[in-house]
């Protein structure tokens, strides 16, 4: 029944904060089984868009559907299909990694035995087993990202929405996260993630959308968006970055 629906469908999502428009009507269709990169400069509205898509922030207008279930009309079903790793949001970090996973699993209504088994596996694969009884608040930035990913994966969601999964992560952890995400997508899951690291997006994604000033500027498969050039060139052109002419800041070279 859910096969014909896109994994994530956004229609006219809009949000303004205190008079400034953060997101001005975003339409997006994420095909099931795709690896979708949401690109944009700082302040483009990536986090706002994703927060509205997963039910963390109520949109001023528009709708979001996860595999055909409206996130705001039928949150229970939609949230069951969703795994989310928000950025800039704390975890319940006075728990240990294992406790945090158990908490999230039970909160999702999972069977305790399954929670135990999956938590052990995730901690092992993500190399967090050594942390033992260390509280998450004492984890390093990379470890926090990894335990956040584990929390999002634990209940086996059909759609994974990750906000900046590669921010502040060292290359070793990044490779591990990339590996797990690739495996998850190969197994039929759908991944949507935001980033401004072009290399990662180019290497991983099947589809890309470029967001700037709260609007989608380019969207399509990665080859369509690139059009034979490098993704970085397209991105800078679309976003309208300034290129130095060489005249100003001349005192920098002495």
């Amino acid at each position: 029944m859910t096969v014909e629906h896109p994994a994530l469908a956004l229609r006219g999502l809009a949000k303004r904060f205190d008079g400034t428009i953060a997101v001005a009507g975003v339409d997006l269709d994420v095909p099931a089984g795709s690896f979708y990169g949401l690109l944009g400069p700082n302040g483009a509205g990536k986090t706002t868009t994703l927060s509205m898509a997963v039910g963390l922030l109520r949109p001023d207008a528009g709708s979001a559907q996860v595999l055909g279930h409206d996130v705001w009309q039928d949150p229970v079903t939609a949230k069951r299909l969703l795994g989310v790793m928000p950025d800039g949001v704390r975890l319940f970090d006075r728990l240990t990694g294992a406790e945090l996973l158990a908490y999230n699993g039970l909160l999702r209504g999972m069977d305790p035995a399954v929670v135990d088994q999956r938590a052990a596996e995730l901690l092992d694969v993500l190399a967090l087993g050594d942390a033992g009884r260390t509280l998450v608040v004492d984890y390093s930035a990379g470890m926090k990202k990894k335990i956040g990913l584990a929390c999002a994966l634990l209940h086996g969601p059909r759609l994974l929405v990750l906000d900046e999964p590669f921010e502040a992560v060292d290359p070793v952890s990044a490779a591990l996260i990339r590996d797990i995400l690739t495996r998850y997508a190969a197994g039929g899951g759908t991944v949507v993630f935001s980033s401004h690291v072009m290399e990662v997006v180019e290497r991983l994604c099947s589809h890309v959308a470029i967001l700037a000033q709260g609007v989608i500027k380019r969207v399509g498969t990665i080859d369509e968006v690139r059009g034979g050039r490098s993704l970085e060139q397209v991105f800078v052109e679309v976003v309208g970055g300034r290129t130095a002419t060489g005249e100003e800041l001349s005192w920098l070279s002495r």
Partner: peptide, 14 residues
């Protein structure tokens, strides 16, 4: 200090 995890499952630790 890194306290080693007990043999219990994650749920029991919570």
């Amino acid at each position: 200090p890194v306290r080693r995890g007990v043999a219990d499952g994650a749920v029991a630790q919570l």
